[in-house]
Write a protein that binds this DNA or RNA. Sequence first.
DNA 1: ATTGAAATTACCGTTGA
DNA 2: TCAACGGTAATTTCAAT
Lengths: 152, 152
Amino acid sequence: MDKINWKLLRALEKNARLSYSELAKLVHLSAPAVAERIKKLEEQGAISGYRATINLEKVGIPITALVECEVYRTKERAFKELVLSLDEVVDCYNITGPSAFILRVAVSSMSCLDVLLERLIDLSDTKTMMIMSQPVDREMPLNIEKVTSSLP
Amino acid sequence: MDKINWKLLRALEKNARLSYSELAKLVHLSAPAVAERIKKLEEQGAISGYRATINLEKVGIPITALVECEVYRTKERAFKELVLSLDEVVDCYNITGPSAFILRVAVSSMSCLDVLLERLIDLSDTKTMMIMSQPVDREMPLNIEKVTSSLP
DNA sequence: ATTGAAATTACCGTTGA
DNA sequence: TCAACGGTAATTTCAAT
Protein backbone atom coordinates (compact mmCIF):
# COMPACT_ATOMS: atom_id res chain seq x y z
CA MET A 1 0.00 0.00 0.00
CA ASP A 2 2.22 2.78 -1.20
CA LYS A 3 1.28 6.28 -2.22
CA ILE A 4 0.52 5.23 -5.78
CA ASN A 5 -2.03 2.67 -4.66
CA TRP A 6 -3.78 5.26 -2.51
CA LYS A 7 -3.94 7.53 -5.49
CA LEU A 8 -5.45 4.76 -7.59
CA LEU A 9 -8.03 3.95 -4.94
CA ARG A 10 -8.94 7.59 -4.61
CA ALA A 11 -9.32 7.94 -8.36
CA LEU A 12 -11.45 4.83 -8.69
CA GLU A 13 -13.58 5.94 -5.77
CA LYS A 14 -14.46 9.03 -7.75
CA ASN A 15 -14.81 7.29 -11.09
CA ALA A 16 -14.68 3.54 -11.41
CA ARG A 17 -14.82 3.68 -15.19
CA LEU A 18 -11.49 5.38 -15.72
CA SER A 19 -9.38 3.52 -18.24
CA TYR A 20 -6.01 2.11 -17.31
CA SER A 21 -4.33 4.63 -19.55
CA GLU A 22 -6.06 7.51 -17.82
CA LEU A 23 -5.09 6.10 -14.45
CA ALA A 24 -1.58 5.61 -15.77
CA LYS A 25 -1.28 9.30 -16.56
CA LEU A 26 -2.43 10.18 -13.07
CA VAL A 27 0.27 8.16 -11.36
CA HIS A 28 2.97 8.42 -14.04
CA LEU A 29 3.18 4.74 -14.83
CA SER A 30 2.40 2.65 -17.88
CA ALA A 31 -1.05 1.20 -18.43
CA PRO A 32 -0.03 -2.43 -17.88
CA ALA A 33 1.71 -1.49 -14.64
CA VAL A 34 -1.49 0.12 -13.43
CA ALA A 35 -3.57 -2.86 -14.52
CA GLU A 36 -1.24 -5.10 -12.56
CA ARG A 37 -1.55 -3.01 -9.41
CA ILE A 38 -5.32 -2.91 -9.65
CA LYS A 39 -5.55 -6.63 -10.21
CA LYS A 40 -3.61 -7.12 -7.00
CA LEU A 41 -5.81 -4.70 -5.09
CA GLU A 42 -8.79 -6.71 -6.27
CA GLU A 43 -7.22 -10.03 -5.38
CA GLN A 44 -6.31 -8.96 -1.88
CA GLY A 45 -9.82 -7.61 -1.44
CA ALA A 46 -8.94 -3.95 -0.99
CA ILE A 47 -11.19 -3.27 -3.96
CA SER A 48 -14.20 -5.50 -3.54
CA GLY A 49 -16.15 -4.33 -6.57
CA TYR A 50 -17.33 -1.51 -8.77
CA ARG A 51 -20.86 -0.20 -8.67
CA ALA A 52 -22.94 2.39 -10.38
CA THR A 53 -24.27 5.03 -8.02
CA ILE A 54 -28.01 5.23 -8.51
CA ASN A 55 -30.12 8.25 -7.67
CA LEU A 56 -33.13 6.64 -6.06
CA GLU A 57 -35.28 9.74 -6.35
CA LYS A 58 -34.73 9.91 -10.07
CA VAL A 59 -35.78 6.34 -10.34
CA GLY A 60 -39.06 6.52 -8.51
CA ILE A 61 -37.94 5.59 -5.00
CA PRO A 62 -38.04 8.98 -3.32
CA ILE A 63 -38.21 7.95 0.33
CA THR A 64 -35.33 6.67 2.42
CA ALA A 65 -35.21 6.19 6.16
CA LEU A 66 -33.04 4.83 8.90
CA VAL A 67 -34.71 2.32 11.18
CA GLU A 68 -33.15 1.53 14.51
CA CYS A 69 -34.24 -1.90 15.67
CA GLU A 70 -33.96 -3.20 19.20
CA VAL A 71 -34.51 -6.83 18.50
CA TYR A 72 -36.39 -8.88 21.08
CA ARG A 73 -34.08 -11.34 22.76
CA THR A 74 -35.80 -14.44 21.43
CA LYS A 75 -36.27 -13.13 17.92
CA GLU A 76 -32.70 -12.55 16.83
CA ARG A 77 -32.55 -15.32 14.31
CA ALA A 78 -35.93 -14.58 12.82
CA PHE A 79 -35.05 -10.91 12.59
CA LYS A 80 -31.85 -11.58 10.68
CA GLU A 81 -33.68 -13.79 8.24
CA LEU A 82 -36.39 -11.24 7.76
CA VAL A 83 -33.95 -8.43 7.10
CA LEU A 84 -32.10 -10.45 4.49
CA SER A 85 -35.37 -11.21 2.75
CA LEU A 86 -36.72 -7.67 2.65
CA ASP A 87 -36.39 -5.99 -0.71
CA GLU A 88 -36.51 -2.49 0.71
CA VAL A 89 -33.46 -2.82 2.95
CA VAL A 90 -30.44 -1.31 1.23
CA ASP A 91 -28.05 -1.21 4.18
CA CYS A 92 -28.04 -3.16 7.40
CA TYR A 93 -25.60 -2.34 10.18
CA ASN A 94 -25.13 -4.74 13.04
CA ILE A 95 -24.13 -2.49 15.90
CA THR A 96 -23.09 -2.63 19.52
CA GLY A 97 -25.52 -1.69 22.22
CA PRO A 98 -28.97 -2.99 22.94
CA SER A 99 -30.33 -1.79 19.61
CA ALA A 100 -28.43 -4.32 17.62
CA PHE A 101 -29.39 -3.15 14.13
CA ILE A 102 -29.80 -0.04 12.06
CA LEU A 103 -31.34 -0.42 8.63
CA ARG A 104 -31.40 1.97 5.74
CA VAL A 105 -34.53 1.36 3.73
CA ALA A 106 -35.74 2.77 0.41
CA VAL A 107 -39.40 2.86 -0.58
CA SER A 108 -41.59 4.42 -3.23
CA SER A 109 -44.29 5.61 -0.84
CA MET A 110 -45.15 6.10 2.78
CA SER A 111 -47.62 3.26 2.65
CA CYS A 112 -44.83 0.93 1.60
CA LEU A 113 -42.84 2.15 4.57
CA ASP A 114 -45.81 1.47 6.77
CA VAL A 115 -46.16 -2.15 5.76
CA LEU A 116 -42.42 -2.61 6.10
CA LEU A 117 -42.39 -1.25 9.63
CA GLU A 118 -45.32 -3.46 10.56
CA ARG A 119 -43.22 -6.48 9.75
CA LEU A 120 -40.22 -5.26 11.70
CA ILE A 121 -42.28 -4.33 14.72
CA ASP A 122 -43.21 -7.95 15.28
CA LEU A 123 -39.61 -8.74 16.03
CA SER A 124 -38.18 -5.54 17.43
CA ASP A 125 -38.77 -2.13 18.91
CA THR A 126 -38.20 0.27 16.08
CA LYS A 127 -37.39 3.94 15.84
CA THR A 128 -37.75 5.45 12.41
CA MET A 129 -35.84 8.47 11.16
CA MET A 130 -36.62 9.87 7.75
CA ILE A 131 -33.60 10.90 5.70
CA MET A 132 -33.95 14.43 4.39
CA SER A 133 -30.58 14.77 2.75
CA GLN A 134 -27.17 13.20 2.65
CA PRO A 135 -24.51 15.88 2.50
CA VAL A 136 -21.61 13.40 2.70
CA ASP A 137 -21.35 10.08 0.86
CA ARG A 138 -17.90 8.59 0.38
CA GLU A 139 -16.23 5.22 0.20
CA MET A 140 -13.13 6.11 2.16
CA PRO A 141 -12.13 8.66 4.76
CA LEU A 142 -10.16 11.52 3.31
CA ASN A 143 -7.29 11.41 5.75
CA ILE A 144 -5.72 8.34 4.32
CA GLU A 145 -2.38 9.86 3.60
CA LYS A 146 -1.95 10.22 7.33
CA VAL A 147 -2.25 6.46 7.58
CA THR A 148 0.46 5.91 4.99
CA SER A 149 2.09 3.31 7.16
CA SER A 150 2.64 0.58 4.59
CA LEU A 151 0.46 -2.49 4.79
CA PRO A 152 0.89 -6.12 3.55
CA MET B 1 -37.71 3.46 -17.39
CA ASP B 2 -38.64 0.16 -18.96
CA LYS B 3 -37.65 -3.32 -17.97
CA ILE B 4 -34.44 -3.16 -19.95
CA ASN B 5 -33.25 -0.07 -18.15
CA TRP B 6 -33.89 -1.72 -14.81
CA LYS B 7 -31.85 -4.65 -15.96
CA LEU B 8 -29.02 -2.37 -16.97
CA LEU B 9 -29.11 -0.55 -13.65
CA ARG B 10 -29.10 -3.82 -11.80
CA ALA B 11 -26.15 -5.07 -13.81
CA LEU B 12 -24.16 -1.90 -13.31
CA GLU B 13 -24.95 -1.94 -9.63
CA LYS B 14 -23.24 -5.31 -9.42
CA ASN B 15 -20.38 -4.44 -11.76
CA ALA B 16 -19.85 -0.93 -13.00
CA ARG B 17 -16.99 -1.97 -15.25
CA LEU B 18 -19.03 -4.13 -17.60
CA SER B 19 -18.45 -3.21 -21.22
CA TYR B 20 -21.30 -2.17 -23.46
CA SER B 21 -21.01 -5.38 -25.40
CA GLU B 22 -21.33 -7.45 -22.24
CA LEU B 23 -24.34 -5.43 -21.20
CA ALA B 24 -25.73 -5.83 -24.69
CA LYS B 25 -25.66 -9.60 -24.39
CA LEU B 26 -27.52 -9.39 -21.09
CA VAL B 27 -30.42 -7.42 -22.51
CA HIS B 28 -30.35 -8.77 -26.06
CA LEU B 29 -29.63 -5.47 -27.75
CA SER B 30 -26.72 -4.12 -29.74
CA ALA B 31 -23.83 -2.43 -28.00
CA PRO B 32 -24.56 1.03 -29.44
CA ALA B 33 -28.18 0.76 -28.36
CA VAL B 34 -27.05 0.00 -24.84
CA ALA B 35 -24.54 2.84 -24.89
CA GLU B 36 -27.32 5.18 -25.89
CA ARG B 37 -29.57 4.06 -23.06
CA ILE B 38 -26.84 4.41 -20.51
CA LYS B 39 -25.92 7.85 -21.72
CA LYS B 40 -29.52 8.88 -21.18
CA LEU B 41 -29.61 7.37 -17.72
CA GLU B 42 -26.51 9.38 -16.89
CA GLU B 43 -27.89 12.58 -18.37
CA GLN B 44 -31.15 12.36 -16.47
CA GLY B 45 -29.20 11.64 -13.29
CA ALA B 46 -30.52 8.16 -12.65
CA ILE B 47 -26.92 7.03 -12.72
CA SER B 48 -24.94 9.67 -10.90
CA GLY B 49 -21.54 8.00 -11.01
CA TYR B 50 -19.46 4.89 -10.78
CA ARG B 51 -17.30 4.08 -7.82
CA ALA B 52 -14.97 1.40 -6.64
CA THR B 53 -16.11 -0.34 -3.47
CA ILE B 54 -13.27 -0.28 -1.01
CA ASN B 55 -12.83 -2.68 1.86
CA LEU B 56 -11.76 -0.39 4.66
CA GLU B 57 -10.50 -3.19 6.86
CA LYS B 58 -8.18 -4.43 4.16
CA VAL B 59 -6.82 -0.98 3.80
CA GLY B 60 -5.95 -0.29 7.39
CA ILE B 61 -9.13 1.45 8.56
CA PRO B 62 -10.70 -1.33 10.60
CA ILE B 63 -13.12 0.65 12.75
CA THR B 64 -16.43 2.09 11.63
CA ALA B 65 -19.18 3.53 13.77
CA LEU B 66 -22.49 5.31 13.54
CA VAL B 67 -22.73 8.51 15.54
CA GLU B 68 -26.11 9.97 16.28
CA CYS B 69 -25.83 13.70 16.90
CA GLU B 70 -28.44 15.84 18.58
CA VAL B 71 -27.12 19.19 17.57
CA TYR B 72 -27.49 22.06 20.00
CA ARG B 73 -29.97 24.59 18.72
CA THR B 74 -27.47 27.39 18.34
CA LYS B 75 -24.76 25.26 16.82
CA GLU B 76 -26.45 24.00 13.68
CA ARG B 77 -24.36 25.97 11.24
CA ALA B 78 -21.09 25.25 12.97
CA PHE B 79 -21.95 21.58 13.15
CA LYS B 80 -22.62 21.33 9.44
CA GLU B 81 -19.35 23.01 8.65
CA LEU B 82 -17.48 20.77 11.02
CA VAL B 83 -18.98 17.62 9.56
CA LEU B 84 -18.07 18.63 6.03
CA SER B 85 -14.53 19.29 7.11
CA LEU B 86 -13.96 16.04 8.98
CA ASP B 87 -11.91 13.49 7.07
CA GLU B 88 -13.30 10.54 8.97
CA VAL B 89 -16.95 11.09 8.07
CA VAL B 90 -17.90 8.83 5.18
CA ASP B 91 -21.68 9.24 5.32
CA CYS B 92 -23.81 11.96 6.83
CA TYR B 93 -27.58 11.62 7.01
CA ASN B 94 -29.69 14.63 7.83
CA ILE B 95 -32.71 13.11 9.52
CA THR B 96 -36.01 14.07 11.00
CA GLY B 97 -36.45 14.21 14.73
CA PRO B 98 -34.50 16.07 17.35
CA SER B 99 -31.31 14.19 16.57
CA ALA B 100 -30.86 15.82 13.24
CA PHE B 101 -27.79 13.89 12.06
CA ILE B 102 -26.38 10.42 11.88
CA LEU B 103 -22.81 10.05 10.74
CA ARG B 104 -20.94 7.00 9.61
CA VAL B 105 -17.29 7.43 10.45
CA ALA B 106 -14.22 5.34 9.62
CA VAL B 107 -11.04 5.42 11.67
CA SER B 108 -7.83 3.48 12.02
CA SER B 109 -7.88 3.30 15.81
CA MET B 110 -10.01 3.89 18.85
CA SER B 111 -7.91 6.87 19.82
CA CYS B 112 -8.77 8.49 16.50
CA LEU B 113 -12.42 7.87 17.25
CA ASP B 114 -11.92 9.46 20.63
CA VAL B 115 -10.52 12.70 19.27
CA LEU B 116 -13.23 12.79 16.65
CA LEU B 117 -15.99 12.42 19.22
CA GLU B 118 -14.44 15.13 21.35
CA ARG B 119 -14.90 17.56 18.50
CA LEU B 120 -18.50 16.55 17.87
CA ILE B 121 -19.42 16.72 21.54
CA ASP B 122 -18.76 20.45 21.60
CA LEU B 123 -21.66 20.97 19.23
CA SER B 124 -24.02 18.10 19.91
CA ASP B 125 -25.10 15.31 22.19
CA THR B 126 -23.70 12.18 20.61
CA LYS B 127 -24.52 8.52 20.87
CA THR B 128 -21.94 6.20 19.36
CA MET B 129 -22.68 2.76 17.98
CA MET B 130 -19.82 0.60 16.78
CA ILE B 131 -20.50 -1.29 13.58
CA MET B 132 -19.73 -4.97 13.92
CA SER B 133 -20.85 -6.13 10.51
CA GLN B 134 -22.88 -5.04 7.54
CA PRO B 135 -24.88 -7.98 6.21
CA VAL B 136 -26.68 -5.89 3.57
CA ASP B 137 -25.12 -3.23 1.35
CA ARG B 138 -26.89 -2.33 -1.88
CA GLU B 139 -27.49 0.65 -4.10
CA MET B 140 -31.13 -0.06 -4.88
CA PRO B 141 -33.98 -1.95 -3.27
CA LEU B 142 -34.56 -5.34 -4.85
CA ASN B 143 -38.26 -4.94 -5.43
CA ILE B 144 -37.92 -2.57 -8.31
CA GLU B 145 -39.81 -4.66 -10.77
CA LYS B 146 -42.88 -4.06 -8.63
CA VAL B 147 -42.40 -0.37 -9.23
CA THR B 148 -42.28 -0.86 -12.98
CA SER B 149 -44.66 2.01 -13.47
CA SER B 150 -42.86 3.89 -16.21
CA LEU B 151 -41.18 7.14 -15.32
CA PRO B 152 -40.16 10.27 -17.33
C1' DA C 1 -18.92 -0.69 -40.74
C1' DT C 2 -14.81 1.66 -40.02
C1' DT C 3 -11.45 3.97 -37.41
C1' DG C 4 -9.12 4.96 -33.37
C1' DA C 5 -8.51 3.60 -28.28
C1' DA C 6 -8.02 0.64 -24.86
C1' DA C 7 -7.24 -3.96 -22.65
C1' DT C 8 -4.43 -7.92 -22.46
C1' DT C 9 -0.66 -10.82 -23.21
C1' DA C 10 4.05 -11.78 -23.75
C1' DC C 11 8.65 -10.55 -23.33
C1' DC C 12 12.60 -7.98 -21.60
C1' DG C 13 15.27 -4.82 -18.42
C1' DT C 14 16.18 -2.93 -13.83
C1' DT C 15 16.50 -3.08 -8.98
C1' DG C 16 17.18 -4.62 -4.46
C1' DA C 17 16.87 -8.27 -0.99
C1' DT D 1 20.51 -15.08 -7.86
C1' DC D 2 15.92 -14.58 -7.73
C1' DA D 3 11.68 -12.12 -6.97
C1' DA D 4 9.09 -7.92 -7.66
C1' DC D 5 8.05 -4.26 -10.56
C1' DG D 6 7.86 -1.53 -14.58
C1' DG D 7 8.37 -0.64 -19.65
C1' DT D 8 7.56 -1.75 -24.70
C1' DA D 9 5.36 -3.97 -28.39
C1' DA D 10 1.90 -6.83 -30.61
C1' DT D 11 -2.69 -8.81 -30.62
C1' DT D 12 -7.44 -8.65 -29.67
C1' DT D 13 -11.39 -6.37 -28.09
C1' DC D 14 -14.05 -2.36 -27.49
C1' DA D 15 -15.99 2.43 -28.21
C1' DA D 16 -17.63 5.94 -31.14
C1' DT D 17 -18.94 7.84 -35.15
